[in-house]
Design a binder for these strands. Sequence first.
DNA 1: CGGGGGTTTGACGAACGTCAATCGGGGTGG
DNA 2: CCACCCCGATTGACGTTCGTCAAACCCCCG
Lengths: 255, 255
Amino acid sequence: MPMRASLTSPAPLTSVVLRRLNALKALSPAQLNRLEVLGERTDVAAPGAMLQSEGGPMRPSFILAGWACRQRLLTDGRRQIFSLLIPGDAVGFCVAPSPLSSASAVALTRVVIASAEPLTGGATASASHPSSAQDPSSFAEHMRRSACLEEGLLLDHIVRLGRQTAYERTAHLLLELHWRLALIGQADNRSFVMPLTQEVLADFLGLSIVHINRTLQQLRRERLIEMSSSHVVLIDAAQLAAIADYQPPLLSRTT
Amino acid sequence: MPMRASLTSPAPLTSVVLRRLNALKALSPAQLNRLEVLGERTDVAAPGAMLQSEGGPMRPSFILAGWACRQRLLTDGRRQIFSLLIPGDAVGFCVAPSPLSSASAVALTRVVIASAEPLTGGATASASHPSSAQDPSSFAEHMRRSACLEEGLLLDHIVRLGRQTAYERTAHLLLELHWRLALIGQADNRSFVMPLTQEVLADFLGLSIVHINRTLQQLRRERLIEMSSSHVVLIDAAQLAAIADYQPPLLSRTT
DNA sequence: CGGGGGTTTGACGAACGTCAATCGGGGTGG
DNA sequence: CCACCCCGATTGACGTTCGTCAAACCCCCG
């Protein structure tokens, strides 16, 4: 259960959202102003907290800090993670005003989250409702592009799970995370912070914990990466990209 | 390369689209009228023909007959199929007016396809463009729901690939296809036609051809299904659902 | 000092892929 | 009408990848 946020100044936290949206399509000054409201209604969720439950209503919001994931559980307890959510990512949006979520979202670390309802015009998720399409420079267009980017990431994930080995999958994931974190200014040239346990990596990549562990060791042994606790260094990104057949998402450049 | 259609009356072919859209949300008589234009611009594609290429422009259309798939190839030739497209399914739609496709679409059988451009107002895919949102009973809402249903199917697929065995995956897929075909009136209580080679099934389920073959044999040996050429009979759907942990998509019932 | 979550290691087995050969049916040319 | 051929389905033998079980280890914290 998310709780009312502490009183630390939330303003700088919203910058990750701005960076991400701006990368999808340039933000006008007017839009920058409207997005300031994000800092006003923030919640904090503890690790393990449910941000959105499967089959429940969808509450559009942005992650300002911390990592989360979208997942589903099989009845026998097996877990599959669909996507890893990092700061700046959207949760609970849906292109249709469908009230139901097809996956649950869970905090993996302490997470600061901001409601986006003031931006969506209230009622339902997508702003393409007739009533809320007043503003041509609306941020609905940004959210549609965001949805496209996310679909691309889902397709990448399907390729990983269906046709790549544990070794390739792991390299591919590290490159994807580096790209996404760089987009929001949370990665430097070669390294980034990844606050995930090996259990989470296993449930994301469709592997066992033991096998993830051995795969990471192999990548380290071959001097392709360095990893200590939650700090990841991509020593040879080009080699990793060749192994994983990785290509970064293409952001459509139509302004 | 799709070619101009033959002159067989296309009218009955569009009924699959109507049935599918109507299941997502009731169609008004006015909308039924507008959808009649689908029969006017149809193309035929031969098996193996590219309906849409990765990175290419998106041309919104509907499949009126035949099966296709969305897929991506790794540079070493491995193939992963993201989704199987059956009659009534949409291709080339995107919630954003993004000109680029993140996967290619390929015909698996002879396919009859109808352009949906007369319905989307022309220019770009989604009808939620300011200029084309004239009609409140527009079919944009249907397409948004369709996108949500498709995302649910993608998530199901991720679970299959990441956390289910070959046996479970296969059972799950057969149940999904039965549900989708029933939606468009192309399945009876227990059986349906599935014009797919085992190679396609393998590339969809992330398995080798040999292993798909043995898995299907096991399902037959245990009298859970019957299969001869392209005809599938689900002998014990309840048992299959238990094996696969299957639950049909929930269509939001908000009118 | 003890405990708990996360990581690491080894031994073993099951699931799945690969290679290669065979089979079977429908189409095609002689 | 028959021989041939090609594609897809099937089978067997074998190897690899990955999962499971169980134990140790490590580090932080109480």
